[in-house]
Design a protein around this nucleic acid. Structure first.
Lengths: 264, 264
DNA sequence: CGACCGATTGACACAGCTCAAATGAAGTGG
DNA sequence: CCACTTCATTTGAGCTGTGTCAATCGGTCG
């Protein structure tokens, strides 16, 4: 990954300031071939680092946010309220994911975003970012692709909620997270740390809190994984995938090649 | 293989040929302020009209399609197979919707697309279309926005499947379609025609076919609507929305204005 | 220590599933 | 014009996954 020029806009510590830029650039280098011009422009985006605590609201349904959010560490969940009080979690963001691109194209947010546990994010304002995208079809395409990946995940969630029973649903969510967090091991076992409660799990899987507990226990009992709330140790990846009916196809980001090397 | 394919170059068959272009242009005019340049380029896209019959496969999971699909009439449904044989419908397209934009950015399709009933579509190839988008930030943004609308719908489906019971789920799907098809009346009652079977309905709502039937009967019994398979007459829109816990917020396409008038 | 929150348990109710069979509508071929 | 097939709808019966309610337990923190 080539290096880039970092310019800091109104930030103090070098360490703190460099990290968000490099993360964003890393993301982009991975996603598309940037020109040095692109790199320069991105580096000039004014970034704002922010921390959020558990269940803190980051953006609310109905808002018209003026900035995008790059998740540096922790997790963000998207959620909607159904009826008067039933929460459904509609998406999970892992470090490196970007939220709020929607705001570039639509005026109002259709769902809320909150921090699952303590998180660190970087905000960057829509206006200059939109200008950059308008100048660079490559970058534009890279972010658009991100939207499609998110959509593919949403579709899998639909299938998960519609056609799998609770045990498989939860297993599937864990499989997905393991792959998205890149912690899947060639060995059968590995662990991941997700700061959620069983109530959160319930709202992801579309089940009740009580039943979430039963399902967690079933997964423990069958020795597929070890679960201590936020610390999850997958004991048998193969078996977990089996239970989940999981295939990682839908998470593959392979870009369409035909046009990748030919912009105007 | 489509029932009938006929390719048009320029202005061949008048009646038939004029329609797809005007539909695509109509869509675009509604979506963004096009330059006459944009308009000209779009008009030069080679279009292919095709017909599909009920449940005919249009694109398959794993394919790498090289063209986009504008739905002229009829309905298309996106679906995934869960386990060995359980189908879940993950999306519905109504006339005017575009499928396969995904292929501009990702190499492989994560879901399949089929015709719900008899449909007429227009295919247009990715390559020249991508070139047009790269030249026009406005157009690019308009289609990106479409992706976000689709994503918002997917999120609502997630909430629908996760947190509503069967009766409300089906009611919600009908409300959504009524709004997307723009057939909602200022009066309380109106009708819409959707060529689906109760099995299709079941696979949309994530329930069994038998239960779909019971739910349909319940909606009939409570005089909220009249259901004759494909002909659905909404007798009491207000009551239907009530049952469905429906709000059309998530379908609103209002574009972000700030950048709409300022490309490079 | 008390308050609170999350995890856990048990009892019971119910939504929705499966299996199986009957009915109805539409099309096909003799 | 009538058997025959096929497919969608409908119905009933019993079973199971999941929800609800309510209580308990265990940790954490002020």
């Amino acid at each position: 990954v080539p290096h880039a020029v970092f310019r800091q806009t109104g930030s103090k510590s070098l360490m703190e300031a460099a990290r968000p830029y490099s993360r964003l650039l890393y993301w982009l280098e991975r996603s598309c071939a940037m020109s040095s011009d692109d790199r320069q422009r991105i580096a000039e985006l004014p970034l704002t680092v922010a921390n959020f605590g558990s269940n803190q609201l980051i953006a609310k349904h109905g808002d018209a946010p003026s900035r995008c959010t790059l998740l540096l560490s922790g997790f963000i969940y998207g959620h909607k309220l159904v009826g008067t009080s039933r929460r459904q979690i509609t998406s999970l963001l892992v470090p490196g994911d970007i939220a709020g691109l929607q705001g570039l194209c639509l005026s109002r947010l259709d769902h809320s975003l909150s921090a699952l546990g303590p998180t660190v994010v970087v905000f960057f304002p829509h206006a200059p970012f939109a200008a950059i995208l308008d100048e660079s079809p490559r970058l534009s395409r890279a972010f658009w692709r991100e939207t499609f990946v998110e959509a593919a995940i949403a579709r899998e969630w639909i299938a998960n909620l519609g056609r799998r029973e609770a045990l498989a649903r939860l297993a599937h969510v864990i499989c997905e997270l393991a792959v998205r967090l890149r912690v899947v091991d060639t060995l059968q076992s590995f662990s991941l740390c997700i700061p959620w409660t069983q109530t959160d799990v319930a709202d992801i899987c579309g089940i009740s809190g009580v039943h979430a507990n039963r399902v967690v226990q079933e997964l423990r009992r069958s020795r597929v994984l070890d679960w201590r709330s936020s610390q999850i140790c997958v004991l048998d990846w193969k078996a977990l995938c089996e239970v989940a009916d999981f295939s990682e196809d839908y998470l593959i980001r392979a870009p369409q090649q035909e046009f990748a090397n030919s912009d105007a």
